[in-house]
Amino acid sequence: MLLLLIPLLETVFGLRGAEAQSVTQAGGRMSVPEGDPLELRCSYSSSTPPYLFWYVQYPNRGPQPLLKYTSGNSFVSGIKGFAAEFRKNETSFHLKKTSARLTDSATYFCALSDTVTETARGAEHKPLRLWDFL
């Protein structure tokens, strides 16, 4: 049985300014047997309705958009079978996939953007470096 290893470290991304916002991913490394369900947890804090994003970064490549929530339907489908559900009452946007594949081994980032651009004075990002260990 092949194991999919997804390293995770705590990531915090937020906007500076009067209306602080942040996103937090749980720390640690995740090992998922190929074919099993996968869930990557993301919580956010925002005083205004947020735009939420998931990005994926494969080895030796730059980050690529995976899916986004801007408004409306709370369930968002992405590429390669990934999906996320915006849960306002739980302030969460967890990334899920029903059947993990070995090709899903990558670094995943949850990000937040202010929907009111006038309050965004720049982004503050705590960089992280995650590696695949197969």
Rank of each mutant, 00 (worst) to 15 (best):
C110D: 01
D132W: 04
R101Y: 09
V56T: 10
A84K: 01
A120W: 02
H94A: 14
T107L: 07
A100Y: 00
F133E: 15
L40M: 10
A84Y: 03
G81D: 06
Y51A: 08
G72W: 10
S71Y: 13
A123R: 02
S71R: 15
T107Q: 12
A26Y: 09
I79H: 10
L5P: 06
G122C: 04
C110I: 00
S105V: 00
L112H: 04
D132L: 04
L3Q: 10
G35K: 15
P7V: 03
F53R: 00
L130N: 14
E90C: 00
K68C: 05
L15V: 12
L5Q: 14
P65Q: 11
S113P: 04
D114S: 03
L128Q: 14
Q57I: 05
V116A: 03
L40A: 03
D104G: 04
G28A: 10
T70Y: 11
N73M: 05
K126T: 13
K126F: 08
E85A: 01
L134Q: 15
S43D: 11
L2W: 05
A20R: 14
S92V: 02
G17W: 06
E39L: 15
E85L: 01
K97E: 02
S46A: 15
R29I: 10
L40G: 05
L134G: 15
Q25V: 12
Y108N: 02
V32E: 06
R16P: 07
A18Y: 12
N60S: 13
S77R: 15
E124P: 03
F53S: 00
T91C: 05
E85F: 02
P37T: 07
T119V: 07
F53W: 07
T115G: 15
G27E: 12
S113Q: 13
N89A: 09
K88Q: 15
P7D: 14
N60Y: 12
K88M: 07
T11S: 09
T115C: 02
P127A: 11
L130F: 05
K97Q: 06
A83I: 03
P33H: 09
L3K: 14
H94I: 06
P65N: 11
G35I: 11
P33L: 10
K68N: 11
Q25T: 15
L9I: 07
P65T: 11
S22C: 04
N73G: 08
A111I: 03
A106M: 05
R61K: 12
A26E: 15
R121M: 06
P49F: 01
K80C: 05
T48F: 09
S45A: 13
S47L: 10
V56W: 05
D104C: 07
T70S: 10
G72D: 14
L112P: 00
S92I: 00
C42N: 07
L66K: 02
S31I: 09
T11M: 08
T103G: 09
Y108E: 02
A26F: 13
S47T: 12
F109H: 04
L4D: 04
T117W: 14
S77G: 10
D104R: 01
A123G: 12
A26P: 08
F133K: 14
F13V: 10
L3I: 12
I79A: 13
Q25G: 09
R61E: 15
G17I: 07
P37H: 15
E118Y: 08
A84Q: 03
A100D: 04
S99C: 13
I6S: 03
L130H: 03
F133A: 10
W131F: 12
Y58K: 14
L40C: 04
E34G: 09
M1W: 06
K88D: 12
C42T: 02
T91R: 01
T91K: 05
